[in-house]
Design a protein around this nucleic acid. Structure first.
Lengths: 259, 259
DNA sequence: CGTGCGGTTGATGTAAATCAACCCATGTGG
DNA sequence: CCACATGGGTTGATTTACATCAACCGCACG
């Protein structure tokens, strides 16, 4: 372990139960579920320990069991699986505010790997505390379930994306989703959205080859959809991307809770 | 409608609330969750109305909301989505014993279409009854959640399958899954597993073309993995299929509930 | 007895994979 | 401080898996 792995921000390190840290998680839940002030407060007061991970650190491996519940406060993470021939498929991308592993509370063995994509801050919540909250507050239980259902819906859209779209619109669709999902926990749309993903990771994300990703990226760039400087990749014209992907965000189920 | 399509077993037709009909659903839940005799009985006593659907009937359409909870007692159904260019992707296959739409209890709008693949018998359970059960019996609530999580896990495996495997192993993998999942609700493995899917549907299932499915099927047949007579398609040598697909069923989480 | 759907087959096209260099920025150790 | 290793990215030549196009077949059914 290198020193910077242990570097916790003062706030996180010293006052794990203080309000502020879990705000982004609450905002994520609010994006799809109605939660009263008391429920929100209960969530914010969840005990947790903060942990900063390096890019590429594993959080959970296929076959293991976890008895923790990590929330992603900053940075990106992803789920992935390997095929027998070594091919890798990224099956989910998680961003700030996302719960990373609700399923291990209910399934014995992980069916996929969970790894950070960038440097990331996690909040490790004791399952006891979460279970208690779920038991006593049905609205929160429901919100967490909705969160699980929405991730499943995103997975179905990815199936459509990988199964039925060509490389260009596949890439554009992914980038659109990135923007819309980032938007969920932010008050204002940022003027510039950075895509913190290497071309190899994009390939594993979209079921393509790094080489082909490279060529498709330049194609998207010349269309104006993205902007690149050096290794930095950023969203260019979102309307262009939406057009290429025929993007619709209904599958994200924003504010779609039912009564 | 041909006569044999209307043939309901006496139990289903005449005594929808009697025990027996929902047995297969209970068995499905038992395959991954421990349920006491009382819980099982409570499930079996759920009120429902039986409905027989023709092959190809829609159960739910994208954009709609449903306030029913259909269980699949016999036959097959599937979820699918359309791309802008008309391409279709089947994103889930449901078989006897599966709950077809738990998510509509929690999300306002369906993000996919739900359609029968074959003639099918549904048990339509009033949401009230199900909600009551979930509220009073936490073990059952947990079992239903596990069911949802396993479907999500299957979706991730499909992503790997479609994103990273070639046509032959992709097809073999799907057929393996079919066998293993059918096995879940059956005491004994059947000597012959029929695959009630047209080549076009296989194409939409696997992100391929009907023509290519056709050629891949003959390739699988000559390898011994499948047997075909006329339009009937059946599993041949499961070991062959498993070998071609490098199949492992851990993602199905059989008997994997945690404490 | 047509009609149509599902399946079959061959010829051809093409999107994406593969192979193989090479580049460049960054970081690292001698 | 330079030499080198490394990881991402870039590029062109070539191959290939799969798509597309266009017939045609044959059983089932109305």
């Amino acid at each position: 372990m290198r020193p910077d792995r242990l570097a916790l921000t003062p706030d996180l390190a010293n006052a794990p139960s203080a309000s502020g840290g879990l705000d982004i998680f609450v905002r994520k839940l609010l994006s799809h579920s109605a939660l009263g002030p008391d429920d929100q407060q209960a969530l914010r007061l969840l005990p947790y320990t903060a942990r900063r991970l390096d890019a590429g650190d594993y959080i959970l491996r296929e076959g293991e069991h976890a008895d923790i519940c990590p929330l992603l406060l900053s940075g990106f993470a992803y789920r992935h699986k390997f095929a027998a021939d070594g091919g890798r498929q990224i099956v989910a991308l998680k961003m700030p505010g996302d719960a990373l592993d609700l399923q291990s509370l209910f399934l014995r063995v992980a069916d996929h790997n969970l790894q950070t994509l960038t440097v990331a801050d996690l909040a490790i919540v004791p399952i006891r505390a979460l279970e208690e909250l779920v038991r006593t507050r049905t609205t929160i239980a429901r919100a967490l379930l909705v969160d699980i259902l929405i991730e499943a819906s995103i997975g179905r859209e990815w199936l459509l994306n990988i199964g039925r779209r060509n490389a260009l619109s596949r890439l554009a669709h992914f980038l659109c989703e990135l923007v819309y999902r980032l938007h969920v926990t932010m008050a204002e749309p940022p003027d510039r959205v950075d895509v913190p993903v290497t071309q190899e990771q994009l390939a594993d994300l979209l079921g393509l080859t790094p080489v082909h990703i490279n060529r498709t990226l330049r194609s998207l760039e010349s269309a104006g959809g993205i902007v690149r400087q050096g290794r930095r990749l950023a969203i260019g014209d979102l309307d262009v991307l939406r057009g290429i992907a025929s993007y619709s965000d209904i599958y994200l189920h924003r504010g779609q809770q039912t009564g």
